[in-house]
């Protein structure tokens, strides 16, 4: 618990710096903070247009509208994850000056990751609206914040590691873009886990993002809890990543400044 002590005792500072991060990120743009809403909307609109209207993709057992909803449920979380990865890799060099103050260093990747997750709020609103309009909503929707929170934990943990890698290997800032694209392909967003051949299916479990995407799809589309094995694995992977990430980050602190 001492690993997370700063997050508890300095939570106000963290909140304030997340606000600063978000404002700074959108400063000078015409739409400003509206991008948080416009961004996910554009992406979801684009995906529905391509998959449902142009390609008219048919998935066994899913209607056209259900398929779009399936894509939406996975895409919102994945988009936040991808942005968080990009933001955390360069976080330490961007916020170098904060290291020469009393600011808790682990907040630097943490706030970058959390700020990226802000798009989950409007994104989820679109998805829930879609669920109400196109399908049948259920009480399972109440569990969506839990899934988002778990994936956020995973992203903060991974972000801590990536931010460290970002200062010793600048290559990671290029590499991460390709990793994100690859992850996007292996995550069942544009297809369903059922459409994956049975032999390959266990490999899905190696993808940490799979659990969150799958959970969302279960809660929104199937109106049921994800399989127990996925709940257990997904939760423990997320929490473990958070703790390991922060632990490594705090241990690396002694060498961090020499490398910046």
């Amino acid at each position: 618990m001492t690993l997370l002590s700063n997050f508890i005792s300095h939570r106000r500072l963290l909140l304030r710096s997340i606000k600063v991060e978000i404002h700074a990120h959108h400063a000078g743009t015409i739409l400003g903070l509206s991008w948080i809403v416009v961004g996910p909307f554009l992406l979801l609109a684009l995906y529905s247009l391509i998959y449902a209207v142009i390609f008219k993709v048919k998935m066994p057992g899913l209607s056209q509208s259900e398929y779009i909803l399936n894509v939406f449920s996975g895409l919102v979380l994945f988009l936040a994850f991808a942005q968080a990865m990009g933001a955390t890799t360069s976080a330490l060099s961007r916020d170098r000056k904060l290291l020469f103050s009393n600011y808790p260093p682990e907040f630097i990747p943490a706030k970058a990751a959390i700020a990226a997750y802000l798009i989950v709020l409007p994104g989820s609103a679109f998805v829930i609206a879609g669920d109400v309009l196109l399908s049948t909503p259920s009480w399972h929707l109440l569990l969506l914040p839990v899934v988002a929170l778990l994936q956020l934990c995973f992203s903060v943990g991974l972000g801590c590691l990536l931010s460290l890698l970002g200062i010793v290997m600048r290559d990671i800032t290029f590499l991460i873009q390709y990793i994100v694209i690859a992850l996007m392909i292996v995550t069942p967003i544009a297809y369903t886990p059922d459409s994956v051949p049975a032999r390959v299916k266990p490999l899905l479990y190696l993808n940490p993002i799979y659990y969150h995407v799958s959970a969302n799809q279960h809660l929104i589309l199937l109106n049921e809890l994800p399989p127990m094995i996925e709940i257990v694995l997904g939760t423990s992977i997320s929490i473990t990543m958070l703790l390991v990430g922060i632990w490594v980050f705090r241990r690396a602190r002694v060498a961090m400044m020499d490398l910046l």
């Binding site: 460290l164 200062i167 010793v168 290997m169 600048r170 490594v248 241990r251 690396a252 602190r253 002694v254 060498a255 961090m256 020499d258 490398l259």
Partner: peptide, 13 residues
Amino acid sequence: AWQGVRYLARAVC
């Protein structure tokens, strides 16, 4: 660059 990575890794260990 690898020395930097090792430096960081040693600090963690």
